[in-house]
């Protein structure tokens, strides 16, 4: 794996988008994308957590691999990430209580957000070095925010349109996400060979 930094950045934001191509972090993608006002801050919060998770995972690998304790990988990642999320939650609660209320249950759920754990697992699986890992996390977070914001704006638009009864709710959101995902596939190849 000798991907350059630029390649990783572009491919994780666009063609290899965390949500639309790798299906990481679907719960908030379906749950909080009813308005841009909520989706965008959640995206930023998740980006921050993803970034922290990536750094934590890299540091943990430095400890686990020399000791041949790779089997503890999963348990240690999730514990460290959970602690990191707790910190962010405390910070948001203090800084802006209304944002905290708007994010509701989804903020603690960032812990069980696949995107956060996924970034840690994928960067290990792909043998990224420190700089590559950071780029991967950054691109993933930006891509996540982008997908969330885009879907939220589309959903705001279709809220008042006439939709067949059977398509209401989750089915409609899934279809919109599918079309969005189709659009993002058009970027395939931009980040260099997959």
């Amino acid at each position: 794996m000798h991907e350059s930094i630029g390649q990783i950045l572009i491919s994780t934001i666009l063609s290899g988008n965390f949500v639309l191509a790798m299906f990481l972090g679907m719960c908030p993608f379906m749950g909080v994308t009813h308005s841009v006002k909520v989706a965008f801050p959640l995206g930023l919060a998740t980006t921050f957590v993803i970034f922290m998770a990536s750094v934590c995972a890299y540091l943990l690998n430095l400890v686990l691999i020399p000791l041949h304790m790779e089997y503890l990988e999963l348990i240690s990642y999730i514990t460290v990430i959970a602690a990191a999320v707790q910190l962010v939650e405390m910070y948001v609660k203090k800084q802006s209580p209304e944002l905290f209320r708007a994010l509701g249950i989804y903020l603690p759920l960032i812990t069980t957000n696949c995107a956060v754990l996924g970034v840690a697992l994928f960067q290990t699986a792909r043998d990224y070095n420190f700089l590559q890992s950071l780029t991967f996390a950054m691109g993933g977070g930006v891509g996540f925010t982008l997908a969330l914001t885009l879907l939220a704006s589309v959903r705001e638009r279709v809220r008042f349109s006439q939709v067949p009864n059977a398509m209401m709710g989750t089915a409609l959101t899934l279809m919109l996400a599918g079309i969005l995902s189709l659009a993002f596939m058009g970027f395939a190849g931009l980040g260099g060979g997959e």
């Binding site: 639309l20 191509a21 790798m22 299906f23 009864n165 059977a166 398509m167 209401m168 709710g169 989750t170 089915a171 409609l172 959101t173 899934l174 279809m175 996400a177 599918g178 079309i179 995902s181 189709l182 596939m185």
Partner: peptide
């Protein structure tokens, strides 16, 4: 490919909604 996942899941939900209706 990824979009297919969204479409098939959406279609199933639609089928269930139709049956229920």
């Amino acid at each position: 490919l990824p979009p297919g996942g969204f479409f098939v899941m959406g279609l199933w939900l639609m089928v269930f909604a139709l049956v229920r209706a």
